[in-house]
Amino acid sequence: MHDIYSFVSGPLAWVAFIAFFAGIMYRLIDMIVQVIKKEPFIFTYMSLKYSLRSIIHWITPFGTLNWRRNPILTIVTFAFHISLILSPIFLLSHVTLWDEAWNISWWTLPDGVADIMALIVIAGSLFFLIRRLTQREVKFVTSTSDYVILAIVAAPFVTGFLAYHQFFGYPIFVILHILAGEIMLVAIPFTRLSHMIFSLFTRAYMGSEFGVIRKSKDY
């Protein structure tokens, strides 16, 4: 068990982080090269002002027409995404690991808050799952990969929650938790989870087109 732990938390963690950062770099560079090669006109229309106008409206809860039209979804999706991003970064046990390995540390969330955030992510995943299964317009465009992606996102939080509370099988859940986290890191650049990176750019481009040319709101 200890060997497996050392492996997943050592070499495999290296692989996952490298794949994550290199993958993001690769996807971004590939996108930019493609734009330069085939659609350089996009740069002509990009506007910082309207990019930010669009991004800020969409990252503000109820900041857009469609967020306001779907209040429950808006609350869930914001709580879900905020928890998903913040809790792994500011979790005390994670920061402790960084501290032990690299002697670096930063501010951490109180454990109780992090615990609630994990539950929010799990509940959010369930919400999205039920939405996929029950809402006709979502179900119609859902493919197997959508469920897989959802599972990839939920898994680190489910296993992390179980490991933290040490209900049963602690060592196994820690290993599963680390594995699940690594799978998610690797999946981000290479699946539709890449919306984490690309949504900023698609938003910025649409915001620019709407601001500069169409002189109307895209939010």
Binding site: M31, V138, H195
Partner: peptide
């Protein structure tokens, strides 16, 4: 004829269906 735009749009869409109610046909 297509490039980063098409690819990024297809790769970024999370199949959430939130565009549906924008459409008069729908």
């Amino acid at each position: 004829e297509t490039g980063a735009r098409l690819k990024t749009y297809v790769d970024t869409c999370v199949h959430c269906g939130l565009c549906s109610e924008a459409c008069h046909f729908y």
